[in-house]
Design a protein around this nucleic acid. Structure first.
Lengths: 164, 164
DNA sequence: TTGATAAAGTTAACGGTGTCTACAACGTAT
DNA sequence: ATACGTTGTAGACACCGTTAACTTTATCAA
């Protein structure tokens, strides 16, 4: 879904589905509506992935950095979708924003559980910003090409910043 | 330059400049080339802004969070350009990457000066990721709409994470 | 002064794209 | 059976990036 290489045009999609170019307009109002729906779906998939990590951990206590790694792996595996999720044109789609807010709430919940003594909102903000920032910079190539030990780099960064 | 609202098409640009639609191709090979040049210019402007903050500080010691605020203000003031600078299509433009790397080197330099005892590279990575992440999430609306005290929020986040 | 050359601008076209309108097929409920 | 809402279609429109062929214009050597 949403391959990186080929152009993402309504016509190309319709062609691939074997349907006429105007058919998508029976189901969506515009291309932006479709992209917003895809972004919303992406946030829900991301939430599911994060939820799995939380549920797999014993006693519900997950280090924030593990959540961040899951987050970053998601971005690595679906770079085009990830870019879409944070695309500036979709900023005012309400359902996309709600799905995004749910992910944030999940992170906040974990932050509150692992650090009951600290400001959960601030911790969640820092954790998300760090994860999102590293994911973006990594995808974009700014952080070099040591792909394999990037996980270690993320762990080191989180540790350097004493967020755990 | 690069207003948010109107479409950024070569033809629209040419029209506004009062020149024919094909004229840009006398100066650039493609639209991507133009965008890459704009992104490169953006990185250089960002570098200048950061450099000014560093030079204005006494003894050359700037808290990382002040650099981050300058970074975020730049993103706020030029949202479309900022999005362009980190657009995934431009990842392999060499000059853009070089300009980006210079900004990173600047941050690293400050990190090394303010925290001689810690890993400068890791600190710079964390600082940039935090700043870039918060800028993105803020522009995108995920962090709420308390626009005025967002600076305070950035300071709180950096403090919460003990990065200074 | 003349003439060659390279830079910069022009018009016209090609294929592709998002979107709209008008029309046809078809399942379903009255 | 008939009316209707749903989903599909073809065709058009304006716009887009890009290219090709042609003209203008400035520069500089002869």
């Amino acid at each position: 879904m949403l391959e990186e290489g080929e152009p993402f045009s309504l016509r190309a999609v319709a062609r691939r589905v074997g349907v006429s170019q105007a058919a998508p307009y029976r189901h969506f109002g515009s291309k932006q509506d479709i992209e917003a729906a895809m972004a919303e779906h992406g946030f829900r998939e991301l939430q599911t992935a994060l939820r799995e990590v939380i549920d797999a951990a014993e006693a519900g206590r997950v280090p924030l950095v593990d959540l961040a790694l899951t987050y970053i792996h998601f971005a690595e595996e679906h770079p085009a979708l990830y870019a879409l999720m944070f695309g500036s044109e979709l900023a005012d789609d309400e359902e996309r924003r709600a799905a995004c807010a749910q992910v944030f709430a999940l992170i906040e919940e974990v932050a509150a559980a692992t650090h009951p003594d600290r400001d959960a909102h601030g911790m969640a903000t820092a954790g998300w910003a760090l994860a999102h920032g590293m994911a973006t910079l990594h995808l974009e190539g700014t952080l070099g090409r040591n792909d394999d030990d990037f996980d270690a780099r993320v762990r080191a960064t989180f540790a350097a910043v004493a967020a755990d």
